[in-house]
Design a protein around this nucleic acid. Structure first.
Lengths: 201, 201
DNA sequence: TTCATTTTAGTACAAATGTACAAAAATGAT
DNA sequence: ATCATTTTTGTACATTTGTACTAAAATGAA
């Protein structure tokens, strides 16, 4: 691992533990045992590091094979997709803790975020349609409500990290599992009898 | 309005507009046209102001007559309660933007938050039970799922402000109405036919 | 009016941060 | 081994912020 990569790893660790309002380039340098000028050689400032880490995260997320939609898609796809995504989010949790502040300082990130949302929204809508056709979820739910559900899923997906720190304070897998379950429970009332049976297995 | 009150009002405005990571005591003083030492006379530091504003907010919230539960409680109670609460949250929106950072710096706030959650949770559980007995919502939903629903409502309630800034960027009443609707839609699949009819009026 | 108290202002200082720059050290191709 | 390039370090400076302290101004009771 070269210096640049080490900086990114150390920065991620410190940001996750203490927050971007506390950690400066000098802290990262001290933690690594190098001079802060050395970090400056690779990154203009702390925001530059944050941006790079965010880009890494988004790239990793975009490459995930989640919500893949084959005609006989089961509920495991939904479940596994949720867990995988939450794991990635947990790994980069500082981003979500400081999401608004980060986007205020770096508006480009907002655009990247909006693109991702748009893609995932369509994926989810298709998956739900698929489930409807398979009789796994109810057919009597208006389109508006599905749209709202997707918004809610996204909102929870983006801020469960913050909610967790505010309340239960779960760590690692426990946190991921707890909030994966919360998201799954959001679907419960949409299941048909068939859906419930499928969900119980 | 005396100086102390003016400080709180000005601070709230600046925090809401620009964030606690940007606004210092000196900014508030400049905005008010007074010396920063004058602010220091009333508040030890910026955190002291934030804490005072938070306490104000919680006090106002605790006095709200929301989720009141009479035997024939209709859906309007739920709806109006949601809107009222979201309005208050919007007024103090900077708190929710910086919630984690604030609680990290002032752990007492976490305790106050936990108390509030516990009270509201019971209120909501009772209201749901009431609705179940009235046949407004379904009786075939496990207790776990109700618990999850409350958690989700709370999570969205605490972070819709952030989500809004990240995406739609709605202002004032438009924001409140949009997210009130989002929360209401969360209930949709729980309604019985009677509930749906009631909701449509 | 006098005088104690409250309120406001001015100033000063240490610490931290972002930033810039020059020099030293390390690296690697020839 | 030489030398250009890359990497790393040390230092310095302006700015901001929290904080403390003193003095001035305003207030109000006697």
């Amino acid at each position: 691992m070269n210096t640049k990569e080490k900086i990114l790893v150390t920065a991620l660790e410190l940001f996750n533990e203490q927050g971007i309002d506390v950690i400066t380039i000098r802290h990262i340098a001290k933690e690594m045992g190098i001079s802060h000028s050395n970090i400056q050689y690779y990154f203009k400032n702390a925001d530059d590091i944050i941006y790079t880490i965010y880009a890494q995260h988004i790239e990793a997320m975009n490459e995930l094979p989640v919500f893949v939609n084959d005609p006989a898609a089961g509920l495991s796809i939904l479940r596994e997709s949720i867990t995988t995504i939450l794991q990635h989010i947990y790994h980069y949790r500082f981003i979500y803790i400081h999401f608004v502040v980060i986007t205020r300082r770096m508006p480009e990130i907002k655009k990247i975020y909006a693109q991702r949302f748009s893609i995932r929204r369509k994926q989810l809508l298709r998956l739900f349609e698929n489930y409807r056709e398979q009789g796994i979820v109810r057919k009597d739910v208006p389109g508006d409500v599905w749209e709202s559900l997707i918004r809610s899923i996204y909102l929870i997906g983006d801020f469960w990290i913050s909610a967790n720190e505010l309340t239960t304070g779960l760590k690692g897998k426990k946190a991921v599992n707890y909030y994966a379950r919360l998201l799954e429970d959001l679907f419960y009332p949409y299941f048909t009898e068939k859906g419930k049976q499928l969900a119980a297995t």
